[in-house]
């Protein structure tokens, strides 16, 4: 179990990541705000606590890998890579522009990116391939694949789930960002996937369920995943879409939306206030 000051540090970083997301998307530019913000604590816990990933040695073959299968929420990954110093802070305004460096979905030209994802359903398979290759190379590296809950309708996810169990890939951890909203509505209305934990369990996975905004719980789950042997672990993280921005929370309206100037200011103010409470 992580110490309180360590938990507090990660919680503050999560606020910084959300602020970066808001700045990246800016005013009047459409961006995937909701599903980026729901990952604040998870991205912070992985990149700034759990993962063996040295930004100064980012191609080390034994580094842990972070794959964002729900590639449309890449602003949260960029936000982390900015804080790690891999993406220059001044590039933040260049998201989805011809002159900028930050593509709308993960691209290998961006330092720190591990795969091309975004055509939904492919990230877990890529993670399976990495974990198999790393096993061949006798590497201790772990692979983390973050999936969306809407994305789980893709059949390929379940093909990969079977393959990971078939090969007993205990170095692979799946994380489901269960924010319960997808592009056009709630997952319950659009394409409900009931008994999610049972499904993963039936596919041969070790299944954990956590509050995805509770850093302590997220870190504990990641620790448990890394000591579980003989099977991959999936962490079903209960999250809030648009977390930290009151008007964007729990709505599909900010799945991929633009902010007005007033909304932009309010979002940054709310995030700053949340961070102040963590001092």
């Amino acid at each position: 179990m992580a110490k309180p000051d360590e938990i507090r540090r990660i919680e503050r970083i999560a606020c910084d990541l959300r602020a970066n997301v808001v700045k990246m998307i800016g005013v009047g530019k459409v961006g995937h705000i909701g599903g980026s913000c729901s990952l604040g604590e998870i991205a912070a816990a992985l990149y700034f606590s759990k993962m063996k990933f040295d930004p100064k040695d980012r191609t080390n073959k034994d580094r842990d890998r972070f794959l964002l299968s729900k590639g449309h929420t890449v602003p949260i990954q960029y936000a982390a890579l900015i804080e790690l110093g891999l993406i220059p802070r001044e590039d933040i305004g260049g998201l989805k522009t011809l002159a900028g460096k930050l593509q709308g979905h993960p691209d290998m030209k961006t330092p720190g990116m591990e795969a091309v994802t975004g055509s939904l359903g492919q990230g877990l398979s890529i993670g399976v391939g990495m974990a198999l290759a790393l096993r061949c190379a006798k590497s201790p590296a772990r692979v983390y694949v973050v999936m969306g809950d809407g994305e789980l309708a893709e059949g390929q996810i379940w093909e990969a789930a079977m393959a990971a169990a078939r090969y007993k890939l205990d170095s692979l951890t799946g994380i489901v960002d269960r924010n319960r909203f997808q592009a056009t509505g709630s997952t319950k209305d659009i394409f409900d996937i009931p008994n999610l934990e049972d499904k993963w369990r039936a596919f041969g996975w070790n299944v954990l369920n956590v509050d995805g905004h509770n850093v302590s719980a997220v870190l504990d789950a990641l620790d448990e995943a890394s000591v579980t042997k003989g099977a991959p672990t999936v962490i079903v993280a209960e999250t809030v879409k648009g977390k930290g921005i009151s008007f964007a929370e729990n709505t599909a309206a900010f799945h991929n939306a633009s902010l007005t100037e007033a909304q932009y200011d309010q979002a940054l103010a709310e995030i700053a206030q949340a961070k102040r409470k963590l001092q």
Binding site: V116, S125, I126, G129, M130, A131
Partner: peptide, 8 residues
């Protein structure tokens, strides 16, 4: 996609 992961 698994092959992609191996190549990566």
């Amino acid at each position: 996609s698994t092959a992609a992961g191996m190549a990566l």
